[in-house]
């Protein structure tokens, strides 16, 4: 296999990078970990005229807690960096766990959270948990920075709101919040290196046994990661029980439109949404951020 020819740039600053991308036009692409775009290029699904490497933008690798803002993850943080980060584990172990379930160890050492989001495949493992926790993303372009909630970031398979001319994803913020538990359950057909057949993330705010607030995000069952709001409504304000969560699971099935492919039929995926919504809710309710 080979990569089609392209020009290569490694700018030293974010400003330089965005300027370069504007100058080179939309056929140039930013290069983060490369674990997605290089595969696409080898498979003939992408042939950028230039790759603008972000490797020198070390400030975008940072992971930190900012009081008042929350958990800030630089877009170039690798999956293993997120998995191993004490700050992440301390505040949202569920994000660390989700990062650990992604691809395999070698890919996690290269692949970045920003790349994972911008690549926008419907089965991606990080979006469900980040959306469930209300994350927002910041992009910097020639016209400055803008921030959008992650739930409105994705527009379709491999499509997101990022502007092709010069915009670069810079950070992901998971706000300070009163959620008491969150989790991501991935169902893949192998225990490593598998895409999710179904992924379900939940975040709940409990008041004793009463579910005050819940967010349920489903992955791999629609063209974008999708919030199962109707399912959350079924349980909010109620005392949790297995029967109630089963009800939420069944309602969540109405919030997805999975396809049938080599990883599973739509019927199977729907039933898995029911099962894993129930299980993910119970886990977040009873075990906290895991």
């Amino acid at each position: 296999m080979y990569l089609p020819d392209f020009d290569y740039y490694a700018p030293e600053s974010l400003a330089e990078a965005t300027a370069l991308l504007v100058e080179l036009g939309p056929a140039a692409k930013p290069l983060a970990g490369g674990t997605d775009i290089l595969v696409k290029m080898k498979n003939g699904l992408a042939s950028p005229s230039a790759l603008v490497s972000l490797k020198n933008l070390t400030e975008l690798r940072d992971i930190r807690w900012e009081p008042g803002r929350g958990l800030v993850i630089g877009a170039l943080a690798t999956h293993n960096q997120i998995r191993d980060s004490e700050v992440v584990q301390q505040h949202f172990l569920s994000i660390s766990q989700a990062a650990h379930q992604l691809a395999n160890n070698q890919i996690r050492n290269r692949g970045t959270i920003g790349g994972n989001l911008v690549n926008a495949i419907p089965s991606a493992d990080l979006p469900p948990i980040l959306i469930a926790l209300g994350a927002s993303v910041t992009m910097v372009g020639p016209d400055g920075a803008r921030t959008v909630p992650l739930e409105s970031f994705f527009t379709g398979p491999s499509c997101c709101v990022i502007e092709p001319e010069g915009e670069i994803l810079t950070e992901i913020v998971i706000p300070e919040q009163d959620t008491t538990g969150s989790t991501y359950i991935k169902f893949g057909l192998r225990k490593s290196g598998a895409l999710a057949v179904v992924g379900v993330a939940t975040a709940v705010t409990m008041d004793g046994d009463v579910i005050r607030k819940a967010r349920i995000c489903l992955g791999a069952v629609y063209k974008v990661p999708v919030l199962a709001e109707e399912a959350a409504k079924v349980i909010e304000g109620k005392t949790w029980s297995d029967e109630l969560l089963e009800q939420a699971g069944r309602t969540a099935v109405g919030c997805c439109l999975p396809i049938s492919d080599i990883r599973g039929s739509d019927e199977y995926r729907r039933d898995l949404v029911r099962v894993f919504t129930r299980r993910a809710l119970k886990r977040a309710i009873t075990q906290g951020h895991v």
Binding site: Y222, V226, E229, E230, R250, T251, V253, G254, C255, C256, L257, D266, E267, R270, D271, V273, R274
Partner: peptide, 13 residues
Amino acid sequence: VWDPMTCECYLED
């Protein structure tokens, strides 16, 4: 046996 194909749908294709 609950049928996952017959529940109310809240999404558009």
